[in-house]
Lab assay of single mutants.
Amino acid sequence: TRVETATETAWISLVTALHLVLGLSAVLGLLLLRWQFPAHYRRLRHALW
């Protein structure tokens, strides 16, 4: 049971790290898009909202 718990903890930390990385890359990508294509971003936002 001790090994299982350790594996579970490792998986949880791995998944958390993955989610953090994905979230950060998504935010960075959005910022980059907004910085590179302001007109396109505004049009996209206008279409979405």
Rank of each mutant, 00 (worst) to 15 (best):
E4Q: 14
L18Q: 03
L28Q: 00
L14K: 05
L31W: 12
R34H: 02
S13P: 06
T1R: 06
V3D: 00
R34M: 09
A26K: 08
T1E: 07
T7G: 10
A47F: 09
R45H: 05
H19R: 01
A39S: 13
A47N: 06
L30Y: 09
E4W: 09
T7S: 11
V21M: 12
Q36V: 12
A10W: 14
R45M: 04
P38I: 09
A39G: 15
G23P: 09
T7N: 07
V21N: 00
L28C: 13
L30M: 12
F37W: 10
L33V: 09
H40Y: 13
V27M: 10
T5W: 00
S25H: 08
Y41P: 02
P38E: 05
L18M: 09
I12M: 10
L44Q: 02
L33K: 01
A39L: 12
L32S: 05
L33R: 03
G23N: 06
L44M: 10
L31M: 08
Y41G: 04
H40L: 08
V21P: 00
L30F: 12
T5C: 00
A39P: 05
H19G: 15
A39W: 11
V15F: 06
Q36A: 11
S13N: 08
S25N: 15
F37N: 01
I12H: 07
H19P: 13
E4K: 08
L32A: 14
E4G: 03
R45Y: 05
L31E: 02
V15I: 12
T16W: 07
L48Y: 06
S25D: 01
L14S: 06
R45E: 02
R2W: 14
L32V: 11
Y41I: 11
L20Y: 04
L32G: 04
E4V: 12
T7W: 13
R45V: 09
S13A: 15
A39V: 13
R34G: 09
R2P: 12
R34D: 00
A39H: 14
H19F: 15
E4N: 08
T7K: 09
H19I: 15
T5L: 06
L24N: 00
L44I: 14
P38K: 14
R34S: 05
V15L: 11
L18G: 03
L48K: 01
A47M: 08
L48E: 01
L31N: 01
L44Y: 05
W11I: 10
A6R: 08
V21W: 03
G23I: 15
T16V: 15
T16G: 10
E4L: 08
Q36H: 06
W35D: 01
T5M: 06
L33T: 03
G23T: 11
V3C: 01
Q36Y: 10
G23K: 01
L32C: 10
L30W: 09
R42A: 09
R45D: 03
W35T: 12
T5K: 01
W11Q: 04
L44C: 06
P38D: 05
Y41A: 14
H40C: 14
L48W: 05
T9V: 11
V15S: 07
V3L: 09
A6G: 13
G23S: 08
R34I: 10
Y41Q: 02
P38L: 08
W49V: 03
A39R: 14
G29P: 02
T5E: 00
L14H: 03
L20R: 02
H40P: 07
A47E: 02
W35H: 14
T7P: 13
V27W: 05
W11N: 06
L20F: 09
V27Q: 03
R43E: 05
V3M: 00
L30Q: 02
W11D: 06
H46G: 10
H46F: 06
L33I: 10
E4C: 04
L24E: 01
W49I: 05
H40I: 08
T7D: 06
L28I: 13
V3E: 01
L33H: 03
G23W: 04
L32E: 00
L48M: 12
I12P: 08
V21R: 02
T9P: 14
V15Y: 04
S13Y: 15
L33Q: 06
F37C: 14
L32K: 03
L44P: 02
V3A: 02
W35S: 12
P38F: 04
V15D: 04
T5D: 01
F37P: 00
R2Y: 12
A6Y: 04
A26H: 00
H46R: 10
Q36L: 07
L22S: 13
T7I: 10
G23Y: 01
L32I: 12
T16I: 15
W11M: 10
L20P: 04
L32Q: 00
Y41M: 14
L24A: 09
W35K: 15
H19M: 15
L20T: 09
H46W: 00
L24V: 13
L22P: 03
W49S: 05
T5R: 01
W35P: 15
F37H: 05
R34E: 01
A10V: 08
W11F: 11
I12C: 09
A26S: 13
E8L: 03
Q36I: 10
W49L: 04
T7V: 08
Q36K: 14
L18Y: 04
E4T: 11
S25A: 14
L30G: 10
Y41F: 10
Y41E: 05
E8G: 09
A26M: 09
Q36E: 05
V27T: 09
T7E: 08
R42N: 07
V21Q: 00
A47C: 10
A6E: 05
T1Y: 11
S25F: 09
L20I: 13
T9K: 10
A10T: 12
W49E: 00
L24Y: 02
V27P: 05
L18T: 06
A26N: 00
A10I: 13
F37T: 03
E8R: 01
W49Q: 00
T7L: 08
I12A: 08
S13H: 10
L30C: 14
L33M: 08
A47D: 05
S25M: 12
L33P: 02
V27Y: 05
L48F: 04
V3H: 00
L20C: 11
P38A: 12
L31H: 01
R43L: 05
R43D: 05
Q36W: 13
T16A: 11
V15E: 03
R2E: 13
L20V: 14
V21Y: 03
H46N: 14
S13W: 15
T9G: 11
L33C: 14
R2Q: 15
L30K: 00
L14N: 07
H19T: 15
S25Y: 01
L28H: 01
A39Y: 11
L28E: 02
H40Q: 14
T1L: 13
A17G: 12
W11C: 05
A17H: 02
E8F: 01
L31C: 15
R43S: 09
I12G: 08
L30N: 02
W35A: 15
W49F: 03
T9A: 15
V15K: 07
H40K: 12
E8I: 02
L32D: 03
A10D: 08
L28A: 12
